[in-house]
């Protein structure tokens, strides 16, 4: 479904990815692991086609999704026309809008009123906390609630494929587990997921496959259960 081939990107004059290749098949959960600064977020930003200054500039390589070349597509159409969504690192909730307005805004490009109604119900049943707080401003939510809202927003944008950047950051161990359970349930109802995660143990537990990035290159890839027992991974990421 998603194919990234020999991708080189740079921020300003600094090359951040030195030719990475990866693929994601429909229905999968794929984890992207690696240390800080390895290029995980950069990979997601590149796929989303976010413009500079947030996004990098692609200098070489290709990104294609269901046969379409994503490189010339602006970010808003990657979401609206191609159906890939991103839950960004740090959540980026609109703090001056209410919970419901945050969700409604994500339906900006959609016209399928009925499906939108069903999706609201789905989000509120996955995250009952959001239903309780629907008229509250986004900046008054706790970190965990903001993460739920960020995922709910991606869901409301009607995408088939969600990229998540460090979703468990700042969450308690209990909330982390809850979060991955929700991701699994979203996945089982037909959404493909690619997740960047610091907590490699948790990610490998839920993912089908994983890639390990190091200094802008992919150094390891494979099935999640194989990687979880790989001695190199165990030493570097599983402690």
């Amino acid at each position: 479904m998603l194919t990234v081939a020999d991708l080189h990107v740079k921020y300003g004059n600094i090359e951040a990815l030195h030719g990475i290749s990866l693929s994601v098949e429909e229905g999968e959960i794929v984890a992207l692991l690696g240390a800080n600064g390895a290029g995980k977020s950069t990979t997601l930003m590149s796929i989303m086609r976010l413009a500079p200054p947030e996004g990098p500039v692609v200098t070489k390589g290709a990104i294609s999704y269901n046969g379409a070349d994503l490189l010339p597509i602006p970010a808003h159409n990657v979401i609206a026309k191609h159906g890939i969504g991103l839950v960004p690192e740090g959540r980026h909730i609109f703090g001056n809008l209410t919970v419901f307005e945050n969700l409604k805004l994500a339906t900006f490009a959609r016209n399928d009123k009925e499906r939108i109604g069903q999706d609201y119900e789905r989000v509120f049943s996955l995250f009952p906390r959001l239903a309780d707080r629907r008229t509250q401003r986004g900046d008054l939510l706790s970190g965990g609630e903001q993460q739920m809202l960020a995922i709910g927003r991606a869901f409301m944008s009607g995408v088939k494929f969600i990229l998540l950047d460090e979703p468990s950051m700042g969450l308690s161990p209990l909330l982390m587990l809850e979060l991955f359970r929700v991701l699994k349930s979203i996945n089982e109802s037909g959404t493909t997921i690619m997740v960047v995660e610091q907590n490699a143990r948790l990610a490998l537990q839920y993912a089908n496959r994983a890639y390990v990035l190091e200094a802008g290159k992919i150094v390891l890839e494979g099935k999640a259960e194989d990687l979880a027992t790989n001695p190199e991974i165990r030493r570097a990421y599983l402690g």
Binding site: N77, I79, L86, L97, L105, F108, S157
Partner: peptide
């Protein structure tokens, strides 16, 4: 929704295209 988008941009410009908004 356009009005909400105006308010959203003033708070967090980066996240607006991620909502599918040009």
């Amino acid at each position: 929704r356009l009005g909400m988008a105006m308010r959203a941009i003033s708070y967090d410009r980066m996240a607006v295209p991620l909502m599918g908004i040009p």
